[in-house]
């Protein structure tokens, strides 16, 4: 029988500015907060104290941007060690990154798709091992959205699953990215989900996007979650269970109350998919310690 503990944990990304002030002021019923370590590792002053105060209330998830785990240049070991220090200091529940590259010999500060080749698989696996050795923990890597990809020897799904298996790492399954890629590259998103290894899915992301054409969606994180993604999220919970889920919103961020409506919907979709009784809105949501 499903119980309260089977319910999904849901969080949002913490961003400096009005959203952070609203979270501080209202202490919303969130199960965790996620931050990009690169934006918080060199914090100082009042904002650092505010960040640490929030961590006494909410567990922390980290989602990195600049590791460039698929990059062609040697790993930035100084950066990995700085990450380790930050992880050790704040003890996040999860540190995740992107299965992509964001730099060649210099940073471009956004995500590029790694060519889907067997040599690239070997290259990425070796780098994941190197990072895991320094951090002393398994990496959780996100399937990224992409709009076009260079010459490939394998498809996205085989590339992803090969790396998960060979590197023995976990998957941050971005459900919006599955949908975006399924439209951009013409595949069945549910079949994609149904082929992923259940045991490796440790964390979920959902987000809004921008549809530019019938076969082109941009992963903007700048809108509410779209209906097809809600449907895919329900399918995801049905297959993978109550995996912790982040609502991503990076641009055109609405008032917190609007985000909380989407948080409520994530919980509702999960409860329905998992066969749990509807929640009593007045029931306090327990927040575990980090």
């Amino acid at each position: 029988m499903n119980t309260q503990s089977d319910r999904v944990s849901v969080g949002i990304g913490l961003r400096r500015g009005s959203l952070m002030r609203e979270i501080e002021a209202t202490q919303p019923e969130l199960d965790f907060l996620e931050v990009a370590p690169e934006n918080w590792m060199r914090l100082g002053g009042a904002v650092k104290r505010q960040f640490e105060a929030l961590l006494s209330r909410y567990p922390l998830y980290l989602h990195g941007l600049s590791l460039s785990v698929g990059g062609p240049a040697p790993l930035d070991r100084d950066f990995v060690h700085a990450l380790k220090k930050f992880i050790n200091q704040y003890q996040p529940v999860i540190y995740s990154e992107h299965l992509s590259f964001c730099s060649d010999n210099a940073h471009l500060y956004d995500l590029m798709p790694i060519p889907f080749t067997r040599a690239a698989v070997r290259h990425v696996v070796e780098r994941i091992h190197a990072v895991q050795d320094v951090l002393g923990q398994r990496l959780t890597l996100e399937n990224v959205s992409y709009y076009t990809a260079p010459d490939a020897e394998m498809n996205e799904l085989d590339f992803l699953t090969e790396i998960l298996q060979q590197a023995d790492c976990d998957l941050l399954l971005d459900v919006n990215n599955v949908y975006v890629n399924s439209v951009n590259h013409h595949y069945d998103p549910k079949a994609f989900l149904d082929t992923l290894p259940v045991e490796r899915v440790r964390y979920l992301h959902v987000a809004g996007h921008l549809q530019l054409a019938s076969d082109l969606i941009v992963d903007t994180h700048g809108a509410a979650v779209a209906d097809p993604v809600w449907d895919l999220l329900a399918h995801t919970y049905g297959r993978f269970g109550a995996v912790p889920t982040l609502l991503e919103r990076d641009f055109d961020i609405p008032p917190l109350a609007d985000l909380m409506l989407e948080i409520k919907k994530i919980r509702s979709v999960a409860d329905d998919a998992l066969g749990l009784a509807p929640r009593n809105d007045r029931e306090p949501v327990m927040v575990a310690n980090a």
């Binding site: 698929g70 060649d104 590029m112 060519p115 990809a149 260079p150 010459d151």
Partner: peptide
């Protein structure tokens, strides 16, 4: 298939300067 490192370099080069870099093979 072209060497993946070369493809990555082409990809980044095009993003930086599409007026002077070729479109990466297959893109």
């Amino acid at each position: 298939t072209t060497d993946f490192l070369a493809l990555q370099a082409q990809f980044a080069d095009f993003i930086r300067d599409p007026a002077h870099a070729p479109v990466p093979k297959g893109c």
